[in-house]
Computed example of a mutant assay.
Amino acid sequence: MTRLLVASRNAKKLEELRRILAGAGVEVIGLDDVPPFPEAPETGATFEENALAKARDAVAATGLPAVADDSGIAVDALNGMPGVLSARWAGSAKSDPANLKLVLEQVADVPDERLTAAFVCAAALVQPGGEEVVVRGEWPGTLVREPRGTNGFGYDPIFVPEGETRTSAELSSAEKDAISHRGRALHQLLPHLRALTA
């Protein structure tokens, strides 16, 4: 079975990626499963730039095909921010609770009907031969003012997907995988991943 390196140490994200890629015929490993290598900081202006940079670094260091994603939430009332800064929005605190609290404070005076947002995920597959594929998935919805649910991470507890009344953190893993931004992006990569094992 072809080994596929997912350029992440986030245990919850790896678990999610393993579920989504379960039918691709690849063995998914994470950064903690390979010898350490210097990881460049995420300095790209777009999700796509950051995902590609992470995947290229992983391939160069290991010689394995690699998938990397960069994702975050784009809040319309904040002009699309936190965007690529989602994980670091609260500055040095950079924890999920601190990031959530700051976003909720920043939209405190925004009317409910203008609390539209979307989760965005860019995923890049880079192969040792130099082939590169970058895809993007978006998951529109709205924000709620109080976190709800425990199934998920990041901004999941304050995001209600379009057509839903539950937050992303109140959805089951299977429900989320089928419709999330990461699920939408990775499903676009599946044909390319299956080609690795052909």
Rank of each mutant, 00 (worst) to 15 (best):
Q106H: 10
R19C: 06
L31D: 03
F47N: 01
G154I: 08
P157H: 05
P82D: 05
V133D: 06
G137K: 12
E131H: 11
L125H: 11
G91D: 14
A174H: 00
A195Y: 02
A53M: 14
I73F: 07
M1D: 08
I20H: 00
E164G: 11
L4E: 09
D109F: 06
E42R: 06
L64P: 07
A68N: 03
T43H: 08
T116C: 11
P147K: 01
V107S: 07
E138H: 05
L52D: 06
A7K: 01
T197K: 08
V144W: 07
R3T: 15
L100K: 13
L102M: 14
V160E: 13
A108L: 12
W139P: 04
E170S: 10
S168A: 15
V160L: 10
E146S: 08
A198S: 15
L125A: 12
L102D: 10
G91A: 07
G183N: 14
L4S: 08
L64Y: 04
A108C: 04
G91S: 14
L5A: 13
V133F: 03
E48F: 04
A22G: 01
D109S: 15
G83W: 07
P147L: 03
R194Q: 14
G149W: 03
D32Q: 13
A108E: 13
V120W: 09
Q127I: 05
L85E: 08
D76L: 03
D57H: 12
A123P: 01
A74W: 02
G25R: 09
A98K: 10
A74D: 08
S92K: 13
P97M: 06
